[in-house]
Design a binder for these strands. Sequence first.
DNA 1: ACCTGAACACCGTTCAAGT
DNA 2: ACCTGAACACCGTTCAAGT
Lengths: 183, 183
Amino acid sequence: MVKAARKDALENRARIIEVARREVAASGVAELRLNAIAKEAGVGQGTLYRHFPTRETLLVEVYRQEVDDLVGLAPRLLETAEPVDALAQWFDQVAEYARVKRGVLAAVEASVWRGITNRSLGPIGDAITLLLDAGRAAGQIREDVDAGDVIVLIGYLSRLDEDEWSRRAHRPLRIVLDGLRRR
Amino acid sequence: MVKAARKDALENRARIIEVARREVAASGVAELRLNAIAKEAGVGQGTLYRHFPTRETLLVEVYRQEVDDLVGLAPRLLETAEPVDALAQWFDQVAEYARVKRGVLAAVEASVWRGITNRSLGPIGDAITLLLDAGRAAGQIREDVDAGDVIVLIGYLSRLDEDEWSRRAHRPLRIVLDGLRRR
DNA sequence: ACCTGAACACCGTTCAAGT
DNA sequence: ACCTGAACACCGTTCAAGT
């Protein structure tokens, strides 16, 4: 219970994110009850809405670390592997994150589904573009694809049940990868 | 207002489906309010639940015609085209249905996401299996894929906005198709 | 047997009142 | 400035009472 107003707000915000992160890890994105998060975080619902006007803005914060990790991984993979192999490894990492933090991709996908004028597909989109461009330059990736195509195709990862994971996660990724190759 | 009980029930059921179908066509699957459907159909909510215990059972009926069309199309395409081409044409038809009746695939997908013991993927799954098997027999399709892989990959079609359609519908399908080819 | 619709439960969202 | 939490809106689902 700190007095300084500004500090209060920041702490509230941090606590909301922390609680939401824990809740999502435990029960998944779909189960995320905003009112419950507010209560657990010890704030009023209005405070949650002040900090996060939409459900999505909250989820972006919840997954910020994971998204940053994935974005940072792309250029590093390109330093040590052929572009297509880098893409394959990056896919594997996405799958791994999606398994542990179901819904890492959910927020990303949302940006693709909506709006004609989505100038950017966000950081994840940029990472994919980087990988695709490198692959194209090396003649390994087909010319006619963009990051949005890849995002819609790998989005299934955020909807797989834990049960289905081992059976369904990796094979479709391989299909996508092979489909992206230059023929 | 017919008296015969059995007939009454059948008529109610038919009217519910009809209203739901119109509503889905107008506003999409996501906007489907079950209580509103009941009211519009002139029945109590309980009656709707008697006939359709879950939202999904209603949607299956709403899309029955379209699903039947797609299932019937697969063997016919195989009569006149090489398996991979048949698959390509079948994909195009799925895309076309998904555009007009957003959510044709939604009910189908649900069967994939849930349950370890999904012995069957339903009629759509059977149709895809037919196409894949023919392709494998002809040496055109890779050995290590099944209908479930294809369903999770093409599921994005049911989530595309109308705006995004022209830009995003077909290219990912091509990627999937090429990824399914034997290399 | 089948149907009705009030009532309950649940969750997101707003806003008047507080500090 | 920022926060609280009662209150409202909305929708799915149930069930006692009707026919």
